[in-house]
Design a protein around this nucleic acid. Structure first.
Lengths: 255, 255
DNA sequence: GTGATTGTTTGGAAGATGCAAACAATTTTG
DNA sequence: CAAAATTGTTTGCATCTTCCAAACAATCAC
C-alpha cells in the first residue's frame, strides 16, 4: 500500500535529531517549548532528553536544556578529519587583509555548499553566512568553482535533487547554460558570481584541488558591485584568489 | 521486578549515539565493522545510518561512513554559547608565549573537567589532552581551582559519582583532605598540582569567575617538575596564571 | 569459478515507544 | 492568599516501531 520505503528510517532517531536541531537553533529551551514546537507529547520529549543527558550529549541548566560540550569535541574531530582547516584559516586571514574584502572557504556536502570559514577585511561586506551555513551550488561562485570539476552525472544528480532556483534575474536557471558556464570555468580556472544570488554583490572563486579532478573546496572573494569593477574584478582579484587556492593546495599536500 | 527505571531511556537513541561515538573514534567505518563492535545486526546499523544520512548528520564515502559537517556547525554553536572562547584563545596564546610552558583552559560539565583549549610554548611538555578531553576534577589543578568555588553539596555529589581514584601517591584520595585543600585554594586564589595526576608534572591553575561564586572555568600552566621549582613554581607562575584568569574575566564581561 | 565476503532488503514477532492521564511542584492570576 | 494554570515527572497500556533472522545481489578472494 504505502511505497516500500527502503531505506527504512527510524522514527525515534529522527525525533532525537530534531531535538538536537532545535537546541542548536534556540541555544536553550525547556521541555514544553520543544514538545509544542516539534509536536510530540511532553512525556516523549522528556524521555528523549533523559537519554541525551545520560549520555552527556546535553546539559541541564535549571529548567532549560542546552547542547553539551561533546558537540565541540565532535566538531573538532570533523575539523581534523578535513585536514585543511588550519591551512585555510591562515591563508584566508592573509587574503582578507590583502584584498580588504570578504573572503570565504566552502566545500560541498550532500549536494550543497557548506561554509567552513570566513574573514572580513575592514571595509568588507557583512553577510549572514558563517560556519556551517548551507547554500545551493549553482548560484554562488564558490559552488560553481566546485561543480566545474565534478563529473557531469554528479552535477545532474545535484540539479535533480535541488533544481535551479532563481534569486535575481542573473541567476542561472537553465541546465545547459549552467553546463556551458562550468566548461568556461574549467578552462579559465576560476568562477564569477555577478549578482546571481544577491543584488549588488559580486564574487570570484577558485577551486582547491586535491588531485587532477578531486576538489576539496573553493576560496572566494566577495564585495559590492561598485567596488568590483573593471580590471580589479576581471583580473586582479581572480589572480589573487587563484593564488590563495594554490597556496592551500600545496600546504595541504605537505601536512 | 526490575527496578522502576525512570527516567526511562530510549534504546534506539542510545544505539544511534553509540554509532556517532564510534565514528568519532574511528574517523571512518563500514557497516559490518560498526555492527560487530557494537553488537547489533548489520540490518539494524544499516537503518540507523540511513536515518543519519537522510538528515545529513553523516556522510558516505564509498563503503565508509564519516561524521558530517553538521557537527562542525553544532560545535561552533556550542562555542558561541560559551561566550568566552575567543577571549580564552587570545589570552592563552599570550600566556603560552610568556611562560614557554603548556597552558590550558577547561570547564566543568557533568562532574568532570573538559579541556577547551591548549597552547604549548616552544619547549612545553606534550600531553595527550586536547579539545573535548575529559578528566576527573580532584587530581588536576584546573579541577581543584573550579571545585574550590562550588558549594559543598555539589562537590559531594561529584565525589559520590566518580569517587577519588588515585593516579600517583600524591593524588588526593581522602574526602576531608580534599575539602581542606579546596579551602586553602579559595583563600589563596589559585591551585597547585604537585605530580598528583602524572609523575614528574607540576601545574598551577586559577579560576575564571563570572560572579562572586559562579565559575566559568580555569586556566592552568603545566611543566616538568624539574623546571617547576622554587620561586617560579610558588610565586611567579601563580601570579601569571591569576593575571590571565583576570584578563579573561574582564574581557568576558565586556563582550 | 567457487566460497566467502560485502551491503541491502524483506517479513514478522516481540517489545520498545509514544500517548494519555494523573502526579507533585511551581508560578501566575485574580 | 487561595485558586487556577503552568510546569516537569511518572505511570500503565495499546500499538506501532524496531530489531532480528534470513535471503538477496554484488563484490571480492583465491
Amino acid at each position: 500500500m504505502a511505497k516500500p520505503d527502503s531505506p527504512r528510517t527510524i522514527q525515534a532517531v529522527e525525533i532525537n535529531l530534531n531535538i538536537i536541531n532545535f537546541l542548536h537553533e534556540h541555544e536553550r529551551a525547556r521541555i514544553t517549548e520543544i514538545a509544542n514546537e516539534l509536536e510530540w507529547t511532553k512525556g516523549t520529549i522528556h524521555c528523549h532528553l533523559a537519554t541525551l543527558l545520560e549520555n552527556e550529549y546535553v546539559v541541564r541548566d535549571g529548567e532549560h536544556y542546552k547542547l553539551g560540550l561533546r558537540y565541540l569535541e565532535l566538531g573538532e574531530s570533523v575539523k581534523e578529519r578535513l585536514g585543511v582547516y588550519d591551512v585555510v584559516t591562515d591563508e584566508l586571514d592573509d587574503l582578507a587583509e590583502e584584498c580588504d574584502e570578504l573572503v570565504q572557504f566552502a566545500t560541498e556536502e550532500h549536494g550543497r555548499a557548506v561554509y567552513l570559514y570566513k574573514k572580513g577585511g575592514e571595509r568588507a561586506v557583512q553577510t549572514a553566512s558563517s560556519v556551517g551555513k548551507r547554500e545551493y551550488l549553482h548560484c554562488i561562485s564558490l559552488g560553481k568553482a566546485i561543480l566545474a570539476y565534478y563529473p557531469r552525472e554528479r552535477v545532474e544528480e545535484i540539479i535533480d535533487e535541488y533544481g535551479l532556483p532563481g534569486y535575481t534575474d542573473q541567476t542561472i536557471t537553465n541546465r545547459e547554460e549552467l553546463f556551458d558556464q562550468l566548461e568556461t570555468i574549467r578552462e579559465r580556472g576560476y568562477a564569477f558570481d555577478d549578482e546571481e544570488k544577491i543584488e549588488g554583490l559580486r564574487c570570484v572563486a577558485a577551486p582547491v584541488k586535491a588531485s587532477k579532478d578531486e576538489v576539496l573546496g573553493a576560496v572566494s572573494i566577495s564585495g559590492p558591485s561598485s567596488r568590483m569593477t573593471g580590471e580589479r574584478y576581471r583580473e586582479e582579484l581572480p589572480d589573487k584568489v587563484t593564488r590563495s587556492a594554490n597556496v592551500i593546495e600545496i600546504n595541504t599536500k605537505f601536512s
